[in-house]
Nucleic acid binder design. Structure first.
Length: 301
RNA sequence: GGGUAGGUACCGAAGCGGUCAAACGGGGCAGACUGUAAAUCUGCUGGCUAUGCCUUCAGAGGUUCGAAUCCUCUCCUGCCCA
């Protein structure tokens, strides 16, 4: 059976629906959320609860130590390994999460680009924005006309690729590895206001569930990747007494809503996914039936 | 009751006679995205029959060729004195 991708913005309710589907079709769940990957930040990242983990096999949840960095390529390798393993055992891999690029790295495969070079990045980061742009124009004029030059991070990466590969980035990065992937893909959606309300409530629930304590007991040396989880910085500010608890909750809610908005933009563009809009009034079982109808059953090719 | 500082677009906040439909930030909306992605970045954000027109800067009058900006009164809000 084709792998099933169940994606959508944070707070839509992917995890619980994935669990039910997994039970129905005999599947195992693979995480595609960049931060639920980490062990020790289960509360801020709204990771699936223990009860769920006990019922169905969940992979790549809490798979990384907080000190480890991660990126799309590393994730891709880990996830592909799990997906293959699940398929080999005759089960359906159900990939659940909301990290657009990570998901695309599975469905489409990343181009074979040189990995990040931290020393090189450090050097490039010392340059002014103007210097950086003229540098890119020199080593990859085509690329310079394609990417958004205002996005310093993209400019830096393009130069990095060009230098490391000794060829212009725009020549190497033409198309995705796999242009016509086969998979079952569902984008779960909610009406905008309902989604925002759910996010707000969820953040309040996190605090009740021990968010403050979780962040307070984090080690000091967590990786740059893990550090970016929404909620960590905000809670630390609260712990340092710089903001009130209400302000802390507010800003986590705000960042989460903004993030959800970006996710929706990403998934809107992705091809090969079908949209399923859930509403508050929907019976959960009905939602699952809706989805089941859309799944392509084993093909006999 | 007396004094004083204020009332600006969804919110906060600049502007303090013309170049003001009004800086900037937030929010909202739309978008981009190939090894930092819960990251990073872009555009729009009074209305319209739209290279122009209309209604806005608490309200009502007034001064002026011209007002969000100056004057008068009124209404609200914060602070101080009683």
């Amino acid at each position: 059976m084709l792998p099933l991708y169940l994606v959508g913005a944070t707070g839509t309710g992917k995890s619980s629906i994935a669990l039910s589907i997994a039970k129905n079709i005999g599947g195992e769940i693979v995480n595609s959320d960049a931060f639920q990957l980490y062990k020790g930040i289960e509360i801020v990242t709204a990771s699936p609860e223990q009860i769920a983990l006990d019922q169905i096999k969940h992979h790549l949840y809490g798979a990384l130590e907080l000190q480890e960095d991660c990126n799309a390529a590393r994730y891709s390798e880990m996830a592909n390994h799990q997906i293959k393993d699940i398929s080999d055992r005759g089960k359906t891999p159900i990939i659940v999460g909301g990290s657009g690029l990570y998901i695309k790295s599975l469905t489409h495969g990343l181009s074979n680009l040189p990995p990040a070079d931290h020393e090189l990045r450090e050097d490039l980061n010392k340059m002014s924005h103007e210097e950086l742009i003229s540098r890119l124009e020199k080593c990859d004029p085509v690329g310079a006309s394609q990417i958004n030059l205002k996005n310093r991070r993209y400019v830096t990466r393009a130069i990095e690729i060009s230098i490391l590969a000794n060829r212009p980035m725009s020549e190497i990065k033409n198309e995705w590895e796999n242009r016509n992937p086969k998979f079952n893909g569902i984008v779960l959606q909610r009406p905008r206001q309902e989604l925002y309300d759910r996010i707000n409530l969820r953040v309040e629930q996190m605090v009740k569930d021990g968010l403050i304590n979780e962040i307070n007991s984090l080690p000091e040396n967590i990786s740059d990747t893990a550090k970016k989880a929404i909620g960590i910085q905000e809670t630390r500010l609260y712990l340092e007494g710089k903001i009130s608890q209400a302000e802390c909750i507010d800003s986590i809610q705000q960042s989460s809503r903004n993030y959800a908005k970006r996710q929706m933009t990403w998934f809107k563009r992705e091809k090969g996914f079908q949209n399923v809009c859930l509403e508050k009034k929907d019976d959960p079982n009905l939602a699952i039936e809706k989805i089941a109808d859309l799944i392509i059953l084993p093909d006999n090719e």
